[in-house]
Design a protein around this nucleic acid. Structure first.
Length: 780
RNA sequence: GGGCGGUUAGCUCAGGGGGAGAGCGCUUCCCUGACACGGAAGAGGUCGCAGGUUCAAAUCCUGCACCGCCCACCA
């Protein structure tokens, strides 16, 4: 409408765990990468939700095929909804993050990150979800308040006296590698440098000093385990402690015996924990300690925050694994500063959302862990050479030819190898992981713009103007996208970010699948219509949450119907004039005043849209529209019907048609369907391709008329209505007179509309009386 | 613990130094010629609390309370 060509792509983020989980429950399967591909496989129970208990193990390739199949049908359903809602995206630019182009671009970007040293592999302690058995990134975490229990347990000094340590995780006692105290904590100064013995397991560990130990927490002595939390990782690194991992990838304590537990009593104690889940082992460890009389006092319940994978339901553990990382600034102050600067370069709507980005960048604790030990995603495009004993050489991964992308290392051999050499000594092995789904969706500007695939398109659309998204994914989608564009293009991926809030349910809690309070759109669209739903959604401002409210949706529906009826009236009442004189020129003062007021509305509406304030644009247009219907239409109705001659009718008809044309275009972005329908009754082409109404043509038509004339005329007719309502009369009832008093300039504005007033109010006469203050008297 | 938003009519919200606003809901009235899937009128508020600045504060400043969120804390 503003005369520009808009590139407005749409994409489906189909990778990742949500899809895998849905496939598991929908088809009743689970992925077992050790199984061979079965080309004849049919899912056991297509189309029926199943319980997770009866899952059939299938190969990775079969599993991925089911993911493909289900996302395709799900995405078709989503597309139907979005189209029905009137989303104005260009459906010919649709992409899928699992689609071929997205895989090519995702792998190519990763390989370029690798070549520049921005991607690297490292082995170390990483946050690990024991249910999904994958590493997760800092951005995927959330804290939840969980009930725990303080155990006060007695370590033993060389002389035999106890040192009490408070912990909520006694099951990690066999993983204890040290105790730490604060260097200034005089209570324990004498202990630092000595060795104590772990209770029940009898392992000698040093007592060390570290500034992160907090004298006020627990007993002031912390047990360092490999690994209970991220502080343990810091202590382990800073104090160069050994690793004694006890928790396996499945969340169970490793089978014994553990080599660092040397005493038979210690080994016996560990056998009571081995193989148990963390929760069960915690109780068992408490029992062991109690049996040995090593618990000081009774366990004490506490509620404390614990880290979870946001999609998981068991606490995260920290497990030492080999993973891929992308440099994000978390370990590099210079890059961190650059990323912070990128956030300042971006125009945020609303501006205060920038703070979330800045907080996140400032709080990064490490690089972005991008490898996931999952199945449905873009594979990490590397292989490893196997040495003579079949051990992979992670130091020099084999890379694919760029022209061969996308590759699936699990299904294709690397350049220079035969498939038969897979897994053989001297042969190769695939990197088994896929990338974090954000590693692909962080490239959506590149994917949509077909980076490296269509240079002409990419050159024209990148960097883009706008990223619209919600606030909870600033730290993921937005940050990662800025990061990838910075690495690859040394600039921002877009100039503006429009950050929306959430839809809250009527109890003001966030709608989410997990809490089951989601209102699915199909029934709402069916009941109220797309325009009504859009009206409600458009009424919310960027950055503010919006409560789901059928009341607001009903108002939108009423507005849409009103637009149709008003259009019908305007076209009917002006038809005769329009056929008589093709160019309808508003010459009446009230008609020009109305258009002058509308000019101001069009100007403010445009300015609001340009400032990303669509809610204000809608509100101003709507407010004017109701005045237009309630007051202006009523005032000019008789004149438009031709009751006072052709010239008067032509002026009214011209103003009505001009105003209608402008109003339909101002409403069109929010109420596309009703506006298109009403437009089609009298105009060629689509309203959505009609020129956006600027104020200037309206100002010319208004010819300098005073817009206040509309206000005083509306006030006068309002006074008549009020009098009739109070007298319990019909609005149609004939009355004697309206006497308007007021200062001369007020009366001067009313004088030209006396005839319109008399007709609309069914008044025998309208009198104007000079007076210091405005007033209205109605003679019934 | 740090930060960001918010607190205005019963509800949902706009406004942001000088008249307390809108819609819904409520009450009453009206089948009027575009619309009864409608229309008209009315009632309804110590603008969270306490200070301060100012001739003037819902609005600016300070503090506090409460709500929501983001981040941190996890021995």
């Amino acid at each position: 409408m503003r005369g520009k060509a808009v590139f407005y792509p749409i994409g489906w983020d189909d990778n990742g765990l949500p899809t895998e989980r849905r496939v598991q429950s929908y088809f009743g399967v689970r992925c077992d990468p050790s199984l061979p591909y079965d080309p004849a496989f049919n899912p056991p129970d297509t189309g029926r939700e199943r319980h997770s208990g009866a899952q059939v193990p299938i190969s990775r390739r079969n599993f991925v095929e089911l993911c493909q199949r289900l996302t395709e049908t799900d995405e078709q359903a989503f597309e139907t909804i979005w189209r029905r809602l009137g989303l104005s995206v260009d459906w010919s630019t649709k992409y899928r993050t699992i689609g071929e182009d997205a895989r090519v671009i995702s792998q190519r970007a990763f390989l370029r990150n690798l070549a520049r040293g921005e991607a690297y592999q490292a082995e170390g302690p990483t946050l690990w979800d024991v249910t999904f058995q994958t590493a997760v990134a800092q951005a995927d975490l959330e804290d939840r308040e969980v009930r725990g229990v303080w155990h006060r347990i007695a370590f033993t000094r060389p002389g035999g006296s106890p040192v009490i340590v408070a912990t909520t995780r006694p099951e990690l006692l066999p993983a204890c590698v040290a105790l730490v105290v604060h260097p200034d904590d005089e209570r324990y100064a004498a202990l630092v440098g000595s060795t104590v013995s772990t209770p029940a397991f009898g392992v000698e560990v040093p007592v060390l000093a570290h500034r992160l130990a907090e004298p006020g927490k627990g007993t002031g002595i912390a047990m360092v385990c490999t690994f209970g939390d991220t502080t343990d990782i810091t202590w382990w690194r800073d104090l160069r402690l050994p690793a004694r991992p006890v928790i396996g990838p499945d969340g169970r304590l490793r089978p014994g015996p553990l080599p660092w537990i040397t005493s038979p009593e210690g080994q016996a104690a560990y056998q009571r924990l081995a193989g148990l889940t963390v929760t069960a082992a915690r109780r068992a460890a408490a029992d062991v300690l109690r049996d040995h009389g090593l618990l000081a006092g009774e366990p004490e319940p506490v509620t404390h925050p614990v880290r979870f994978y946001e999609k998981g339901d068991r606490p995260l553990e920290i497990i030492t694994t080999r993973q891929w990382f992308l440099r994000s600034g978390g370990r590099d102050d210079q890059l961190r500063a650059v990323m912070a600067e990128r956030g300042r370069e971006l125009d945020w709507h609303p501006g205060f959302m920038r703070v979330r980005y800045e907080d996140w960048v400032a709080g990064l604790t490490g690089d972005w862990l991008v490898s996931r030990q999952r199945f449905f995603g873009v594979p990490i495009p590397v292989w490893y050479r196997l040495d003579g004993e079949g051990r992979p050489d992670h130091g020099g991964p084999i890379l694919p030819d760029d022209a061969a992308l996308p590759v699936d290392p699990a299904a294709e051999p690397p350049p220079g190898y035969q498939e038969s050499q897979r897994g053989r000594p001297g042969g190769f092995a695939a990197d088994p992981d896929v990338m974090d789904t954000w590693a692909t969706s962080s490239l959506t500007p590149q994917i949509a713009g077909r980076w490296t695939l269509d240079d002409d398109l990419f050159g024209r659309v990148f960097p883009m103007d706008l990223r619209p998204q919600a606030h909870e994914i600033i730290r993921t989608w937005l940050f990662y996208t800025v990061l990838r564009a910075h690495a690859e293009h040394h600039g921002l991926p877009w100039r503006h970010a429009a950050i929306s809030g959430w839809i809250l349910d009527p109890d003001r809690t966030k709608m989410s699948k997990s809490s089951g309070n989601v209102v699915t759109p199909a029934a709402v669209l069916e009941e109220f219509g797309s325009d009504a739903v859009r009206y409600w959604a458009a009424s919310s401002r960027l950055g503010s949450d919006v409560t789901f409210d059928t009341g607001q949706i009903r108002i939108g529906r009423r507005l849409a119907i009103k637009i149709m009826n008003a259009t019908r009236f305007v076209l009917a009442v002006s038809a005769a004039s329009a056929s008589g004189s093709p160019t309808l020129s508003p010459t009446g003062p009230l008609d020009q005043a109305m258009l002058g007021r509308l000019a101001a509305v069009a100007e403010e509406c445009t300015a609001s849209f340009m400032a990303y304030d669509h809610a204000r644009a809608l509100e101003r247009t709507e407010a004017f529209f109701w005045t237009f219907c309630d007051d202006y239409l009523e005032l000019v109705k008789a004149r438009a019907y031709g009751e006072r001659g052709e010239d008067a009718a032509v002026s009214a008809a011209g103003a009505l048609r001009q105003a209608l044309s402008v109003l339909l275009r101002l409403f069109a972005p929010v109420l596309p369907f009703v506006c298109e329908e009403a437009w089609s009754w009298w105009q060629e082409g689509s309203v959505h391709l009609a020129p956006w109404p600027g104020p200037e043509p309206l100002r010319e038509l208004a010819a300098g008329a005073d817009p206040r004339m509309l206000d005083v005329a509306a006030a006068a007719i309002g006074a008549v209505r009020k009098a009739k309502t109070e007298a319990r009369m019909s609005m149609r009832a004939r009355v004697e007179a309206l006497v308007v008093s007021g200062p001369p300039d007020h009366l001067a504005l009313l004088d030209p509309v006396r005839d319109d007033l008399a007709a609309a109010g069914h008044l025998a006469r309208v009198e104007l009386r000079p007076a210091p203050a405005p007033g209205y008297d109605v003679l019934l």
